[in-house]
Simulated assay, not measured.
Amino acid sequence: MSREEEILDGLYENTLNGMAPPVVELTKEGIALNMDPMVLLFDALIPALEEVGRLFEIGEYFVPEMLIAAKAMSGAMEILQPLIAESGAEPLGTFLMGTVKGDIHDIGKNLCNVMLEGAGFKVIDIGVNVAPETFVEAIKEHKPDAVGMSAFLTTTMPMFITNIEAIEEAGLRDQVKILVGGAPVTQEYCDTVGADGFAPDANSCVRLTKQLLGIPA
C-alpha cells in the first residue's frame, strides 16, 4: 500500500472515530505530498462522515459521536477549504444557516454546518439569536440557494413563521429553499409554517438539501 493510500485510510478511520489530531496531521501530510485536496475530501473525509450518519440512523452512534466526528472533520476542512477555493472548484450550492431570535442553542446548527461543508456546500453561518431582518439582509447579500433555521425551544419555534413572512415580504421567498430543524420541531410543524423541508438531524439535512436543490445524492 502506498503512503497516499495509507493517508486516505487513516483519514477515514480517524474521522469515523472522532480522532481530531491525527486527522489534521494526515491532512497536512497529504497536502505536503501534493495530494489533491478534492481526493482527500471525496475519497476519505466525506465517506467517513456518511458512515457516521448511517451509524447514527441505525442507532449505533449518538449525538456525542457525531459531534466528535464532525469536529475531527472540521479540523481538516480548515486546511482544505482555502486550497479547494484556490483551485476554483465550484461548491454544490450556498447554504445560509442561523438559530432564530430568542434562541442561543447552536450544537445542532454547527453539526449541520460541518456535514454540509463536508458534502461540498458553501455554508454561511449567521449565528444564534438571529432577527428576521438579519435573515432577510443575509439572503440579499449572499444569495443562498437554501436557508436553514434552527429552534431548540418550543417558545422560539413561532419565529419560523415570522422569518418566513419577512422573507416573503422582501420578495425573496421564491429564491430560496427553507429548511427548519431543532429538537421540538416536527414535519407537521414544518408544513404549518410553510417551510420547504424539515431535517431531524445533520445527516438528513444534507440529504434533504440535495433533494430540494435537485442535486444527485
Score class of each variant (00 low, 15 high):
177 K>D: 04
165 E>N: 13
28 K>C: 08
20 A>E: 06
43 D>A: 15
35 M>P: 05
84 I>A: 12
150 S>H: 08
157 M>N: 09
14 N>W: 03
9 D>A: 14
56 F>Y: 08
89 A>Y: 13
215 I>F: 06
79 I>T: 11
123 V>C: 10
7 I>R: 00
186 T>S: 14
32 A>G: 15
210 K>Y: 07
100 V>G: 03
203 N>I: 01
102 G>K: 15
65 E>H: 14
146 A>L: 06
183 A>F: 08
97 M>D: 02
195 A>V: 12
137 E>S: 10
100 V>R: 01
160 F>P: 05
171 G>W: 04
153 L>Y: 00
160 F>E: 02
108 G>M: 00
187 Q>H: 08
106 D>L: 11
20 A>K: 09
57 E>Y: 08
56 F>T: 03
169 E>P: 02
88 G>W: 15
126 I>A: 12
184 P>C: 13
137 E>D: 12
196 D>K: 04
58 I>M: 07
217 A>H: 10
16 L>V: 06
153 L>E: 04
126 I>G: 15
105 H>L: 09
201 D>T: 04
178 I>M: 07
61 Y>F: 15
81 Q>K: 12
20 A>Y: 00
1 M>C: 11
72 A>F: 03
207 R>Q: 12
168 E>V: 12
64 P>S: 06
51 E>Q: 08
64 P>K: 12
76 A>F: 01
52 V>C: 02
150 S>L: 06
109 K>V: 09
121 F>G: 01
181 G>D: 11
7 I>N: 02
58 I>V: 13
5 E>H: 04
122 K>H: 15
132 P>Y: 02
68 I>H: 10
201 D>Q: 13
177 K>T: 03
72 A>H: 04
197 G>Y: 04
143 K>T: 14
208 L>C: 03
144 P>W: 05
193 V>R: 03
74 S>D: 11
217 A>R: 15
65 E>G: 07
174 D>Y: 02
44 A>F: 07
151 A>C: 08
46 I>V: 14
158 P>Y: 07
177 K>Y: 00
44 A>W: 00
81 Q>W: 06
153 L>C: 09
80 L>E: 02
79 I>S: 02
189 Y>D: 01
